[in-house]
Simulated scan of single mutants.
Amino acid sequence: MGEHDTSALPEARPHSFADDVYGLATGSLLMAIGLTLMKAAGIVTAGMGGVALLLSYLFPVTVDVAFWLLNLPFFVLAWSALGRAYFVKSVAAVALVSIWLAVTRLCVSIDSIEPAFAAVAGGTASGAGILAMLRHRTGVGGVTILSMWLQKKRGWSVGWMSFALDAAIIIAAIIAIPSEKAIYSILSVAAVSGILIAWHKPGRYTGY
């Protein structure tokens, strides 16, 4: 049998409802933990989570509230372009991330954290959470929903598209926050996108 012979693998099965629930719950928690680490370090990151962090530094608004409000317009795209099931899961995912962010804000207090660690660990945790939810066909924010739509329509990589869209967020961060924080923010974006580029590829995952 060849090294890449898959003839012995069982037939792929779709995720069950319980699989989806658990995937969304754990993925959203990982994302919230990552954003919490980055919030403690005063940096931003990829996607709507990064925009929510940036707004929390500029205005008297919490990350959880900003994340929910920012994503409301993109639910329309999820409904019209990606289907009702994707829309429902996307609303659930964004709501869960917002809830977990509120819970961690109330339950976790971080007095000191190195920005480099927050960028790598927080970005990796957020990326893993996004990946978990994408595996269950769920958008976790405006950037991801738009990237998934472009992948469906044009076959473009979710990871590379997310990276390109996030560049605009980092440009805004460079203008709005201290330069050293912006550098660490770039590192966090690379950590998030690296997870998606490495593991979110069409045809690689079969449901197991």
Rank of each mutant, 00 (worst) to 15 (best):
P202L: 05
D166I: 07
M161N: 11
I170D: 03
W149N: 10
A128R: 00
H15E: 05
V120L: 11
V108I: 14
F59N: 11
A32V: 04
R135M: 11
L187M: 14
I113M: 02
L35G: 02
S80P: 00
A198V: 00
I145D: 01
R84M: 02
A198E: 01
A176G: 01
G34I: 04
L77V: 11
T104W: 11
C107I: 10
M161T: 15
Y57N: 02
V51T: 12
V120E: 00
V97P: 07
A92E: 05
A167S: 14
F17G: 15
V120I: 15
A168E: 08
A32S: 10
L96Q: 01
T124V: 14
L134D: 06
S28D: 10
A93G: 12
H200M: 10
V94A: 06
I177K: 06
I195T: 14
A118M: 01
A95R: 04
I186L: 14
A191L: 03
E11G: 11
L37G: 02
A172G: 15
V51R: 08
G27T: 06
T206L: 13
L134T: 07
A66L: 07
V158G: 02
A132P: 06
I175C: 08
G127A: 04
R204I: 10
V158A: 04
A168T: 15
G139R: 08
L29T: 05
L196P: 15
I130F: 07
A167H: 02
N71K: 10
V44E: 01
S193K: 06
A121H: 05
L30R: 00
Y57M: 15
L37A: 05
G141Q: 08
S56K: 08
W100Y: 15
T138Y: 08
R137P: 00
A40K: 08
G207Y: 07
A95Y: 03
A32Q: 04
